[in-house]
């Protein structure tokens, strides 16, 4: 089975985020982060699509790059997976520079891209049997077909599969070689809700077996559900990295207090709502404060505000990889 499975026991729950990047007893030298990116820049002609990204992905974690379409997610992943060249910056993935990485290195990573195809004229079983020839370690074909939920379609030709079934086949091929690190580029785009749920279960299983997963998505709920940490990327810049429930901590600290005064709707956004409330209540000792509400932004709102407030003056340093997650 997966080589790193024996290494780290599966841990449940979100608090595994707090785990140290280096499991005890293992020399830090040999257990650097799965992915380390510093100052990554990629330009297409005059357009800068990745603009100074710093990123660390710890071994065994599921990391989501979350951002709107065109934010630079795919390009970043393609560079990390050694499929594209970069213009500047340092990238180390499983200890090697992807730009010059060996085949041995490549066999340790799995990639599920958006535009990869496995040909049309073979059946699912034939496709999986064929690509087994490319890897040093191979998962059993029938087991793989079951794991991605293609059991009934093993003998169906790939060109007769639905879009969702094709994505599952892509995932099967991505994990066939028992990768230590799996890149999933918008894996559930175009899947119906049931298929998405199934896919999430599959990713959770892989992750629990010790596979490091780096996925890109533009679905907030997907990132929140799957990821230990989420990096929000906008216009090629990483604007925030945090566990999903701590995403946008600064924005979340701000509460909106609303009430009605003299028939007018009042609204104040403040990091210290209690102080405001105290004043409001003191001013209305005998009566109710009509229409009084205190709200904090939900995850969705935080995300929308994060991607709306694109920083213009220089990249925001995420601070990850230096031990703090703010």
């Amino acid at each position: 089975m997966n080589t790193s499975a024996a290494f780290r026991a599966p841990v449940g729950g979100r608090d595994r985020v707090a785990e140290p990047a280096h499991p005890p007893g293992v020399p830090a030298l040999r257990r650097g982060p799965a992915v380390r990116v510093r100052g990554l820049v990629k330009r297409y002609g005059m357009r800068t699509v990745v603009d100074g990204v710093d990123l660390d992905v710890r071994r065994g974690e599921c990391f989501a790059l979350l951002g709107p379409n065109g934010a630079g997610k795919t390009t970043t992943v393609e560079i990390m997976a050694g499929l594209r060249r970069r213009d500047a910056g340092e990238v180390t993935v499983l200890g090697e520079d992807p730009a010059v990485a060996s085949r041995r290195w490549r066999d340790r990573i799995g990639v599920v891209g958006q535009r990869t195809s496995a040909g049309d004229a073979l059946t699912v079983a034939e496709t999986i049997a064929h690509y087994a020839h490319y890897h040093a370690l191979v998962r059993d074909g029938a087991e793989l077909v079951d794991a991605v939920g293609l059991t009934g379609t093993a003998h169906t030709r790939v060109d007769r599969l639905s879009g969702g079934q094709r994505r599952r086949l892509e995932v099967a091929l991505g994990v066939q070689g028992q990768p230590e690190l799996l890149f999933l580029d918008e894996p559930t785009t175009g899947l119906d809700p049931a298929a998405r749920r199934q896919f999430w279960t599959l990713v959770e299983e892989l992750r629990n077996a010790g596979t490091t997963v780096l996925l890109t998505t533009h679905y907030l709920d997907e990132a929140a559900h799957l990821a230990d940490r989420v990096g929000v990327i906008v216009n090629g810049r990483l604007v925030e990295v945090a566990p999903p429930d701590r995403l946008g901590a600064r924005l979340r600290r701000e509460a909106t207090v609303r009430w009605t005064e003299d028939g007018m709707q009042r609204e104040v956004v403040t990091p210290t709502p209690a102080a405001l409330l105290r004043r409001l209540l003191a001013a209305a000792t005998e009566t109710e404060v009509p229409g009084l509400t205190v709200t904090r932004p939900g995850l969705e709102e935080v995300y929308l505000r994060l991607i709306a407030t694109t920083p213009t003056p220089g990249p925001v340093r995420s601070g990850i990889g230096r031990g703090d997650s703010r």
């Binding site: 080589t3 790193s4 024996a6 830090a28 040999r30 200890g95 340790r108 890897h135």
Partner: peptide, 17 residues
């Protein structure tokens, strides 16, 4: 960089075909 150079797969993985 030096740390990177010594990174090895956990549990020796055979060479690819």
């Amino acid at each position: 960089m030096t740390a990177a150079a010594t990174d090895e797969p956990v549990g020796r993985r055979p060479a690819p075909p």
